[in-house]
Amino acid sequence: MAPKTLISQNLQFEKKNKDMVKLPKYAQVSKRPIPHPPIATPYAGASVPKTVYVSSRTPFMSAVKRVKKFLVQAEKRATAQVDLSSSRKRDAQKLAQIARAGEKLRREERVVVKATGRAMERALAVGKWFEEKGAEEYVVSVSTGSVLVVDDVVEDEEAKRKVVEAAEKVAKGGLGEESKAALKKRKRAESALAVAEGEEELPETRTRWVNKVEVVVSLK
């Protein structure tokens, strides 16, 4: 999706999640951390992507300072070879140094702030800070997307035992004429019993799509 500015924009996300299989009451979903590459240090070279991952617990100003440090170090690396103090150098040489520094800076002038789910609001707040506080120094854009994550399905054996006992009682109680509600309840119990006893396989994992934002902060 094309980048947008942060001010007065309603972010849109593609709906990818389909109806998931309903889990029995004794099964819970355990969310795995979303994997990502090792986090680069501010002193890593230009070839290393500079990314700041934001969670819902990340302190706001801490994320802002991390982004600023990445950009400051990028500027220092780009200008390290520039020496304008020497009077012996011609203006053309000095301009060439500045041009090379600018080219280096353009290769690593961007920092990407990434967040998913509830943390997206915090990432957008970080971008808005740069957009408003540093309008003369920084350019900010945002794009949306989604990431596929894997969750584990965990069974609670004690809860499973109770479900089986309750389901057996209901399933065996279907004698004589039943009301529609009682019949529906008995069928649910029989289905739960079938899953609990292994007649229907319970998945070990479950996948889902999570919305994400990428806020790009770069030097002007």
Rank of each mutant, 00 (worst) to 15 (best):
A2V: 13
T5M: 06
I7P: 00
S8G: 06
Q9K: 08
L11E: 04
Q12M: 13
E14Y: 01
M20W: 01
R32T: 11
P35F: 05
H36Y: 14
P37M: 02
A44E: 11
A44I: 02
T51K: 04
Y53L: 10
A63N: 02
V64A: 03
V67A: 10
V67I: 09
K68S: 14
K68G: 09
Q73P: 00
Q73R: 05
K76A: 12
Q81F: 06
S85W: 00
R88K: 13
Q97H: 05
I98D: 03
A99M: 04
A101Y: 02
L105R: 05
R106S: 14
R107L: 13
E108G: 12
V112G: 01
V113F: 03
R122W: 00
R122H: 11
F130C: 01
E137K: 11
T144R: 03
G145P: 07
S146T: 11
D151Q: 02
D151S: 11
V153W: 07
E155S: 11
E158G: 01
K160Y: 11
V164W: 11
E165R: 12
K169T: 11
G173P: 08
G176Q: 06
E177N: 08
A181C: 06
L183Q: 14
S191F: 14
S191D: 15
L193P: 07
A194V: 02
E197C: 06
E197N: 15
T205M: 10
W209D: 03
N211I: 02
V217N: 05
L219P: 04
K220M: 10
